[in-house]
C-alpha cells in the first residue's frame, strides 16, 4: 500500500519554454535506463530476493516513482504552452501528432517504453548487479542531461536526481554485502 503526498520530492523550477530540452528529458522518463524502468524493475524483483533486502527494493522503487513525477513535471512545464510549430522544430512533431500536448513513456528518440528494458532473473546476485548497473547508467544519463541543459532550474533538479542515483547504487552494493555475510555466518555454526 502507498500513501501519496501531494507535493514533489524536490522543487522543480522551469524558467524557459524549451520543448527541445523536454525531448531530451524523455530519455529518463520512458527510456531504458530511466525512472519508469527502474521503478518497475525493483518493484517486481522484490518478491524473490532474500528477506533482508526486500525493503531496499521497495523503498528505492517507491522513490523512483517520485523521481518519475519530477521528470513528468519538468517535461510538462517545458512543453505545455509550446505551439505545434515549436514542437515540430524541437523534433516533437511526431509526438504531437500521436499524443498532442500529453506526456507519453518514450525515450528521447521517440521509442515507446518496453518491458524488455528490464529483467528479473530470480538470482539475487544477478538481479542486484543489474540494479547497480541501472543506477550507474541513470547517473551517467543525468550527467549528459546536465551537460546539454541550458535551463538552470532544470539543471538544479537534475543534479539532485543524479546524487540520488549515487545513494541508490550504494544501497544495492550494501545489499550484496549483506548477502555475502550469510556465507560467513554459516561458518560459525
Amino acid at each position: 500500500m502507498w500513501v501519496y503526498e501531494k507535493k514533489l520530492l524536490y522543487p522543480v523550477e522551469v524558467t524557459t519554454c524549451n520543448p527541445m530540452l523536454a525531448k531530451y528529458l524523455m530519455e529518463q522518463y520512458g527510456g531504458a535506463d530511466g525512472e519508469l524502468a527502474a521503478a518497475l524493475r525493483y518493484m517486481n524483483q522484490r518478491y524473490t530476493v532474500p528477506d533482508k533486502v526486500i525493503g531496499v527494493l521497495t523503498d528505492i522503487s517507491t522513490e523512483e516513482f517520485s523521481h518519475l513525477e519530477m521528470l513528468a513535471t519538468m517535461i510538462y512545464k517545458l512543453t505545455k504552452d509550446a505551439t505545434p510549430e515549436q514542437l515540430e522544430k524541437a523534433g516533437l512533431g511526431a509526438h504531437f501528432v500521436n499524443h498532442g500536448h500529453s506526456l507519453f513513456y518514450e525515450n528521447a528518440g521517440g521509442v515507446p517504453f518496453t518491458a524488455t528494458y528490464i529483467q528479473s532473473k530470480g538470482d539475487p546476485i544477478a538481479d542486484l548487479y543489474e540494479d547497480i548497473a541501472a543506477e550507474e547508467k541513470a547517473r551517467a544519463t543525468y550527467q549528459w542531461l546536465i551537460d546539454i541543459s541550458d535551463d538552470p532550474g532544470v539543471s538544479d533538479a537534475l543534479r539532485f536526481l543524479r546524487e540520488r542515483e549515487n545513494i541508490h547504487s550504494l544501497r544495492f552494493r550494501e545489499s550484496v554485502e549483506i548477502l555475502k555475510e550469510e556465507r560467513d555466518r554459516k561458518k560459525i555454526f
Binding site: 547517473r139 551517467a140 549515487n166 545513494i167 550504494l170 552494493r173 550494501e174 550484496v176 554485502e177
Partner: peptide, 10 residues
C-alpha cells in the same frame, strides 16, 4: 566520473 559509492561497499 568515479562516484563516491565505488569506494564504500558498506
Amino acid at each position: 566520473v568515479l562516484p563516491p559509492q565505488l569506494f564504500t561497499n558498506f
